[in-house]
């Protein structure tokens, strides 16, 4: 039921939406989240963001997160796509789609999926600033708190 991919290529929310809904008439609500590259970090302009992952474990973690969402809500479809490699301001990073019969489950499942993806899937971001310096993004306590609200 879940579409799970880690890829360097961009994704199209329209194309993924069409795949998820193809031939389905039981879905009453489809919620989405897209994460994109911001052009600054802590007030400093950035020129690039490089995403690294742990091949194998990342896909396994994403599959577990999708399975946990399916256990908590009556989901009719899940799409999780996360990009890796070098991205630039404005580029897509991550797509979450959750389809349900009704809106609340779709909205809640989408929030759950992105919160857990941010804190439980092995991806790391490095930012490149205008002066050429680079810095690994540090994990944020409020991301942990966001994930913990689904505990």
């Amino acid at each position: 039921m879940a579409t799970i991919r880690v890829q360097t290529a961009d994704f199209s929310i329209g194309a993924e939406y069409a795949v998820l809904l193809a031939g389905r008439t039981d879905i009453g609500g489809l919620a989405s989240f897209i994460g994109t590259v911001r052009d600054s970090a802590k007030g400093r302009p950035i020129t690039a963001m490089t995403l690294e992952h742990y091949p194998g474990m990342t896909e396994a973690a994403m599959t577990r997160i999708a399975a946990e969402a399916a256990r908590r809500w009556d989901l009719l479809g899940i799409t999780l796509i996360h990009r890796v490699g070098t991205l630039h301001p404005g580029d897509n990073i991550v797509l979450v789609l959750a389809a349900c019969a009704h809106r609340q489950a779709a909205l809640d499942a989408t929030g759950f999926l992105i919160d857990w993806l941010k804190t439980k899937a092995p991806f790391w971001k490095k930012e490149t600033f205008v002066d050429g310096t680079e810095s690994w993004v540090e994990a944020r306590a409020d991301d942990e708190q966001a994930a913990d609200r689904w505990a």
């Binding site: 995403l51 941010k118 899937a121 991806f123 790391w124 540090e138 994990a139």
Partner: peptide, 10 residues
């Protein structure tokens, strides 16, 4: 056995 910093995806 893998070692890494706290994750920062999403």
């Amino acid at each position: 056995i893998a070692f890494f910093p706290p994750v920062t995806g999403g």
